[in-house]
Design a protein around this nucleic acid. Structure first.
Lengths: 289, 289
DNA sequence: GCACCACTGTAATGAATTTGACAGGCATAA
DNA sequence: TTATGCCTGTCAAATTCATTACAGTGGTGC
């Protein structure tokens, strides 16, 4: 790949600065005053902003080598979006020899994109509300995941359980569900991970739980599990990767962040609990060996 | 003037997230995937990008309180140019409206740093070698994780098992280990996840496995599990986050990437397998309900 | 002073966009 | 099951936009 290809509109302009006419210099100044946003409105607005006529804008675009004004705009949008994507991540991932097309690089890019998009999709107030619910000691917490997200649910259960008592994992095996519904008390929290392809049986479970008075919290993907309609709080995420399956990285991220938030929120008590846990672990290990 | 200060399009969207229809949610996700640039092209392009019709875009714009699509675009341009000129915003904050110190932002920063650092730590030739080992059908694969990484090992087992036969998960319960050692054949692969605090018993297991002729592959953290000394291939990662525990995100990333690499490497065969799996799942589901 | 040339704006045309009206479709509730 | 209401896409009209053609302006060299 040659380095020439990736010349930005700004570079092209500076390159041609010598042969620009008066009207074109006005345009260049106007564009640089608010680069590149000034060039993203209509050709009429841009011309008026610079104080020239519309055909002058068009002539400048052609002089820079574009087929027309829309082509110039697309170039501007392209470099803008490249610039807004975390620049470090894209360029610094593997300074080394691995090709861009390598699966690790493709996966890493996708993962970073997912993180960004998910953080935008999530409402941090909802996140805080979920953390508050999970931190309330008088509420039991019941965690549930589907085929894909089962591992995340399991992981979340393990860690939240270190932070507080009263945390239960609803097993994937449907046979045991009735008793778990029985154990639900009014005000308990049911946290469900459900990404496509959505599990109709989990919807049933959530509906029943809600009928029992549970607060339903849903962590789902951008296409939204049907459980969203009955959930009190929903955190939508983005989980696409170049693979046959979706990625669990962002759900895991949310799970870890939620645990951290709960731990933060009630630090002294949790710290004591963790300390006790470490001691017990030590004792068990010694006892065994 | 209302108490609310000028809210961004992103905020408006999240505010209304509850009352958005399916098509509108698609648009929201598409916009957030490349915010705000995705919304700066024509209404036609934007609609096509999100996979909905143009009128749906218009309806969303009106729902957010704009007079039409161009008005929405102008709002996007406005906040974009404000953001680009404001030096603070240069460092593109993700959950933009949440404070920097918010746990989500701190966690996200740490996760991104971990990703970058891990990609630099890993040698992509080692990664490829691991993928090749895992893809070899004549070798059985045995997967093992510790207390923290157990969930990742479990997840990795589930997914790799979808891609190929001969994948086994060594349970955490030590009691069952002898039989698993017995099942190891010369040339089999033992893939171990081990991060601090390292588990001495896993080292013993790995040593025994190597003695049986197994290829030991280790996925560990930057401080390197002692197993590294006997492992044939080692992938060191970075897993620090602002929390009481380390993060499993990067190990999960590597696990997912490895599965994708194995799947890629032997696509036709794997595809057939996955297809059969889907069929079986369908059948089971139908049979149950 | 006169003719030439390059540059710029006005006006008109054609293309694309935006918007409103309509009807099919899906889910919900009776 | 049937009826209702909401959502969504197709289609067509109206508007805006991008582009071309052309005429006017100002400057430069002879």
């Amino acid at each position: 790949m040659s380095a020439k290809r990736q010349s930005t509109v700004a570079e092209k302009l500076r390159m041609k600065a010598g042969v620009l006419t008066a009207a074109e210099k006005k345009l260049m100044a106007a564009l640089f005053a608010d680069y590149p946003v000034a060039g993203l409105s209509s050709i009429t607005d841009f011309a008026r902003l610079a104080g020239v006529s519309t055909p002058s804008v068009l002539r400048l675009a052609k002089k820079l080598g574009f087929s027309g004004f829309p082509a110039l705009q697309e170039a501007l949008r392209g470099e803008l979006s490249a610039q807004l994507q975390n620049p470090i991540a894209k360029h610094e991932r593997w300074a080394a020899e691995a090709p861009d097309a390598h699966i690790l690089n493709r996966f890493a890019d996708a993962a970073m994109d997912n993180m960004r998009a998910s953080l935008r999709l999530m409402d941090h107030r909802v996140f805080d509300a979920v953390a508050r619910l999970l931190g309330a000691r008088r509420r039991s917490v019941h965690i549930m995941g589907g085929r894909i997200t089962g591992a995340v649910a399991h992981y979340f259960h393990t860690h939240l359980h270190m932070a507080r008592p009263g945390v239960h994992l609803v097993p994937e095996a449907q046979a045991a569900w009735p008793q778990y519904l029985l154990n639900l008390s009014r005000g308990d929290v049911l946290l469900v991970f459900d990404v496509r392809r959505y599990d109709a049986r989990m919807l049933d479970f959530a509906v029943s739980a809600k009928a029992e008075g549970a607060e339903v919290v849903l962590i789902t993907d951008q296409w939204m599990s049907p459980i969203a309609r009955i959930a009190g709080l929903t955190l939508p995420l983005r989980i696409e990767v170049p693979s046959s399956w979706d990625s669990n990285m962002v759900p895991l991220f949310v799970a870890e962040s939620l645990v951290a938030a709960v731990v933060d929120h009630n630090w002294p008590e949790t710290q004591a609990r963790i300390h006790r846990l470490e001691t017990i672990n030590e004792t068990l290990r010694r006892g065994k060996s």
